[in-house]
Nucleic acid binder design. Structure first.
Lengths: 140, 140
DNA sequence: CCTTGAGCCTGTATCAACTACAGAGCCTAG
DNA sequence: CTAGGCTCTGTAGTTGATACAGGCTCAAGG
């Protein structure tokens, strides 16, 4: 049996995709925009990833799930990569991101209030009068 | 004085933009994608809008503010334009949209919880240990 | 009369964050 | 030996706009 735990197992793009649940094409995209590093290539020009790339990609995906933009992810990675990152710097990014998340929640809640109160007035009948349309058409 | 209330005053694109607060280019965009009708043109090929276009554009803008996608707006307009729209049909669209708004709120709230509890653990010091980075790097 | 500026026209490029596809190369199993 | 599955590249499409270039037209001022 080759490839037991002695040698460093290389991963191809598809392997990395499967391990992380990331879309195959997205990996290449992340490389293009510089959030994933250009990996070494095999003699046949295939990308050769290792465990470190799995970690990096998982980091990116987790940050994206938390709603950080790719620009923000780049900032976070720069701090991590720089090795000089301090808790204070990272906290700053997270706090300002948190503020924008809260703003979005407030916006959506406002929308939710308007929509639900409007829908509540609907008869749901086969009649052409509709409070939703009225609300949208309103000349107020 | 010409153009007192007797004749129908025509509006140019810039007028429509000013009246509604819509961006000038966005009006053309809405025409291209078919949510605004192609207006008649003057002899010099200028778009000639009237009051009905103001109403239509305001409708679109209000729906967008409420988070309806342009596809959903198209559906709403089709119901209104068809003349056969019933309160029930419109209510259906609004309800399903409401559901997606609520889902988005829930997502963001989850993110908010994770972020705020993580940030709360930060010391904010000039040290390289950072709970935010830990949360992102976590191998759990 | 001429110029200058404002407004309009068109088509096309840009943004985020992906996703997808075409056309080619490579490798392995049957 | 060939069929398939994987990889490679570059490029296009998505949503909802926004911006810009290059060219017309029009009204006012000098």
């Amino acid at each position: 049996m080759k490839n037991h735990h002695r040698s460093v197992k290389i991963l191809r793009r598809g392997d990395l995709a499967k391990l992380t649940g990331c879309n195959l094409e997205t990996i290449r995209y992340y490389e293009n925009i510089g959030v994933m590093p250009e990996p070494p290539r095999t003699s046949k020009n295939y990308r050769a990833y290792d465990e470190s790339h799995v970690g990096r990609l998982r980091f990116i995906m987790r940050a994206r799930e938390l709603g950080f933009t790719l620009d923000e992810v780049r900032d976070l990675l720069a701090l991590v990569d720089g090795g000089v990152q301090t808790c204070g710097e990272v906290q700053g990014l997270a706090i300002s991101h948190l503020a924008s998340v809260r703003a979005k929640i407030d916006d959506l809640k406002r929308i939710e209030r308007v929509l639900s109160s409007t829908v509540a007035q609907c008869t749901g009948d086969d009649v052409p009068e509709c409070p939703v349309i009225d609300a949208l058409t309103e000349v107020t």
